[in-house]
Amino acid sequence: MADASLFAVFMDGVFLKNFLIVQFLGLCSFVGVTKDVKSASGMSGAVIFVITLSSVVSYFLYTYILLPLRLEYLNTIAFIIVIAALVQLVEFIVRKHMPPLYRSLGIYLPLISTNCAVLGAVLLNVMNEYTFIQSVTFGIAAGVGYTVAMLIMSSIREWSNVVYVPRAVGRGVTYAFFIAFVMSMSFANYFKVIPL
């Protein structure tokens, strides 16, 4: 995988391996914070930010600390601690220096440390043996793909408020899963018809 072009890595991350719809990573936020577009875009912004940052940090951690010390088997523990610490740090910095950004992203940041999308991206970087540039590209792409899916989902939910749905489906998680079913059909089939 180390020779995959950056464009291929990016497209993989955004569409073919879309984190929410194809790989099912980060579903809690996919059904939890997509009731309106505003909070969905806030969450997406925070996720792009944190995934990119943790791809960078975890690459250095893995290549320069875990590999030379032959501690690869500790990568799950090491990554989760680093991500949790990173999210805390980002929260402090953003709160101190960028109050407007904190007001829009702030409440979503703590949620992210237990979002499987972040840890998933980092672990997939290691599993695919990506180089540094590829890791960062995949991190950004994963974040963008997450954003695409979150925005489509939240727009559908927001605009379909007047649509009739049976009471057993309701407006909650069940409804979100039915939308996700239709969305994933289009995602899964689109790239069979139009190969990249």
Partner: peptide, 22 residues
């Protein structure tokens, strides 16, 4: 075939949840 792909997962859980709600 689609039931083993990702849409099948969403459909299965959506229908099961709807039954539980019902």
């Amino acid at each position: 075939g689609i039931m083993t792909l990702s849409p099948g997962a969403f459909l299965t859980i959506a229908v099961l949840m709807a039954i539980v709600n019902y």
